[in-house]
């Protein structure tokens, strides 16, 4: 399954583990690489990740929805009032999901085809309308409320990714929250709309192995 290739920029060994994830950032020279039938091509450079104290790191393993996963990529996003991480999880069954990490809380989100979303207000937002925080609507029999709607910018990325996360890439992002821990995110730019749906999780319930060690802090008991 895994495809090992030399980085066209620096020659280091780079791994592509899934055909669904054709993008990756070279661990050594930070080149953004895209894999195709013709081979691997460099499409740009990715900015260095700013220092943070996130407990998650590439290579961390865990379990969610009765399936093991490994953290294989990350995109760091920013907006006017802060920044957050989206970690890409590759599950043992080949599926992938995002672990959003913001304000010390975690969200497990899976991409859903926007074509299947029936909620009219959400389709209007997908088609270019602005969302207003506080707006409520039904989504799959659940009442959801718009928690945030803002322009976000891609700061940096690392590892394997399903898309080309160029630093400076701008998106319009709308966050939705349900009453019982459900959450969803709609992101759009000029070309594309993507929709993610999931729920709040705790790091503990993911039974993480290989958490990032942070100086002066003992690893939590759930990771022992």
């Amino acid at each position: 399954m895994s495809l090992h290739l030399p980085c066209p920029n620096c020659g280091a060994d780079v791994v592509f583990r899934s055909p669904a994830l054709p993008n990756r950032v070279c661990d050594y020279c930070r080149s953004m690489l895209v894999r195709s039938d013709a081979g691997v091509a460099k499409v740009g450079e990715v900015a260095a990740l700013p220092f943070d104290v996130s407990p998650v790191q590439i290579g961390m393993r865990g379990r969610a929805d009765d399936n093991g996963f490994e953290v294989i990529g990350r995109v760091r996003w920013a907006w006017t009032d802060g920044a957050w991480n989206e970690w890409l999880l590759l599950f043992d069954d080949g599926a992938n999901a995002w672990l959003g990490e913001a304000m010390g809380q975690f969200m497990l989100l899976r991409e859903q085809p926007i074509g299947k979303v029936r909620t009219r207000a959400l389709r209007e937002i997908a088609n270019g309308k602005d969302a207003r925080p506080g707006t409520e609507f039904q989504l799959d029999q659940e009442k959801m409320v718009v928690a945030d709607a803002r322009e976000v910018v891609c700061v940096a990325a690392e590892g394997e990714l399903p898309f080309t996360a160029r630093s400076g890439w701008r998106l319009y992002s709308v966050d939705l929250r349900g009453r019982h821990g459900q959450c969803a995110t709609l992101q759009r730019d000029d070309q594309e709309v993507t929709f993610y749906k999931g729920r709040y999780v705790t790091l503990a319930e993911l039974a993480p192995r290989g958490l990032r060690a942070i100086e002066g802090w003992t690893l939590p008991s759930y990771a022992a």
Partner: peptide, 15 residues
């Protein structure tokens, strides 16, 4: 900062 956090054996600084 070096970006090779994935293989970094040292704990990340806290502050």
């Amino acid at each position: 900062m070096q970006p090779d956090t994935a293989i970094e054996p040292q704990p990340a600084p806290a502050a």
